[in-house]
Design a binder for these strands. Structure first.
Lengths: 334, 334
DNA sequence: CTGAAAGCGCTTACAG
DNA sequence: CTGAAAGCGCTTACAG
């Protein structure tokens, strides 16, 4: 800014005015300053600017997610970005891999950069820095969880209802031997999906067998092996519910390799690419992560715009899309 | 910081020392300050800190990409993040959707936030702000392009060689009627892939027919329709080369709906989820975007660590993975 | 071992 | 219409 002022032969205050498009500068000076700006490739330092500024227009929001390489989260991010872009705001995102320690570091790093607000997909119980930031008044929107905190903003799919629908779907098609493969139970969403599965079995008067439930945080490749292993053991199930996208991908692969895709009923939570191009198609309870992201960001900006009403909970329902795999009957394999 | 100093009954300089873990503070004071810090939930303002600091350890790097919802870019981002994390550095990323205007805005926004360095997947010719930033000494690593600039760092797949391999693969299986579906030619990668296709046809003495080449920036859904439309027209090709992941997904869907997957040879550029679980499997020239991201980030940090050697070009080779779809012969359909 | 001063690059009042 | 002063939250020299 100093250099620009020197180049244009004005005080640096005048440069500030021009850069901020303030009125009350003679057009002659404006031109000279603008010429100097382009000449020197000057870009105002937003950090310094925000340091003094009181009426802080948000310039950066933070997003704490589990794994940006996972389609679900990258679409969520895109939805947030889409809304943030209309406000000329950038999104500073980071993956936790479900580690509470990493989540803590990430939230700290984001707070230290004074992001205007946060969207958080927690990996476990509420993190201390997050709680103290809420108290301090930083707007935070939670996604895909039900934090043990009062009066917070929240956007999530109805994991429980979706899992109930998926399980009923399999029951209605005559299955009683249903295995559950799902994400690590440190995640709220994973717990709720398993709850839905368990409750639905109970209502149907079916036993809940521990060795028919496999959970953990794994890659698609790992899930491929886990599912394949399950089906090469004794008394394999006639149906499976895969409660997350990586699990679904792994299961489809495993069953495909074993030549069992037409013999085992299968419903997944989350849609997957080419889910409608395999044979049979993969029946799923889809989510619309991009929409979830948009909703979360819109709610966050409402808060940044001054809305201080009570916490808003947005819970999105979803039901099974029939594509073939979920409609296979056990009769067909006996 | 003021409040912490008051709470601990010391000068704010002492707080600064404790927060930065500097030696030469009595343990009594350290304890008092640390207590005040946790009490008040104090987090130092990194922006203010960096303003004065000279020996700037990088805390944030920027990443300009095309679309974070696309698997290729989100994996790239994850690779960058993975390396950045080891340096306690955050990644500020944004999608351009291939718009030069949006790219300009994004680069400006990143520069204004004084990111330590940039990884950029350009959507077209070099952008002015980027060029002036390079001159100013900001380290920049380009991905997936060949910028018209001297002495830059670059990481990319060998788009040309990959496309040649894919096209030869189809030629070797007896095809002469090959259609090309690919991304918009504003992208360097798209142009190189088309070049590879065209050259290989020419070497084989085959004509290059304009209506057998369809390019553009589209969603998977759009590509599904475009490819389906192509195959319902007169004299459809016996083979297709889909030069990007969304195109490949759309083509697999379209052919699946038309019941033509076993009748049309198909090779794609980029791997896709479930590409090995459809029937036949999708033959592809894969890329490893996460690895590209890691390489780009490593090179960027080398520069940030002071390496000022000449620009490094890393070009990664890849060849066809045979899964079935690429090995279909035209004889089989006549 | 601790603190008062000056400065990072800007903006916000306040003068001329 | 333009500028000199004070301050944002911190760090970097320099004193005590």
């Amino acid at each position: 800014m100093r250099d620009v002022a020197a180049e244009a032969g004005v005080s640096f205050k005048t440069v500030s005015r021009v850069v901020n498009g303030e009125s009350g500068v003679s057009t002659a000076l404006v031109e000279r300053v603008e010429a100097a700006v382009t000449n020197l490739g000057y870009r105002p330092d937003q950090r310094a600017r925000l340091l003094r500024r009181s009426s802080s227009v948000p310039t950066t929001i933070g997003f704490v997610l589990v794994d940006v390489a996972n389609d679900f989260f990258s679409s969520l991010l895109r939805g947030i970005e889409e809304v943030a872009m209309t406000r000329e705001c950038l999104v500073l995102a980071g993956s936790t891999d479900g580690s509470a320690e990493r989540e803590r570091q990430l939230v700290d790093a984001l707070v230290e950069r004074r992001v205007a607000g946060l969207v958080v997909v927690p990996s476990g119980p509420p993190n201390p820095t997050l709680v103290s930031e809420i108290k301090r008044g930083t707007p935070i929107v939670f996604v895909d969880t039900e934090p043990e905190l009062d009066d917070v903003d929240l956007v999530r799919s109805d994991h429980y209802a979706g899992a109930v629908d998926a399980t009923r779907h399999l029951l209605h098609h005559g299955h009683t031997e249903i295995a559950y493969f799902g994400d690590d139970l440190t995640f709220f969403s994973a717990r709720r999906r398993l709850d839905g599965f368990r409750q639905t079995l109970a209502e149907a008067g079916l036993p809940f067998t521990a060795d028919r439930v496999i959970t953990g945080s794994h890659s698609t490749d790992d899930w491929t092996e886990i599912v394949a292993h399950h089906f090469t053991g004794p008394s394999p199930p006639t149906a499976i519910f895969t409660a997350q996208n990586y699990v679904t991908l792994g299961a489809v692969r495993a069953l495909h390799r074993l030549g069992l895709r037409s013999d085992v009923a299968h419903v997944g939570f989350d849609d997957v690419d080419l889910g409608d191009a395999v044979t049979p198609g993969v029946s799923v309870v889809p989510q619309d992560p991009r929409d979830l992201g948009r909703r979360a960001a819109r709610q966050l900006f409402k808060r940044l715009d001054g809305d201080d009403g009570p916490g808003v909970h947005q819970v999105i329902e979803s039901t099974v899309i029939e594509r073939g795999s979920g409609e296979i009957r056990p009769a067909e394999i006996i």
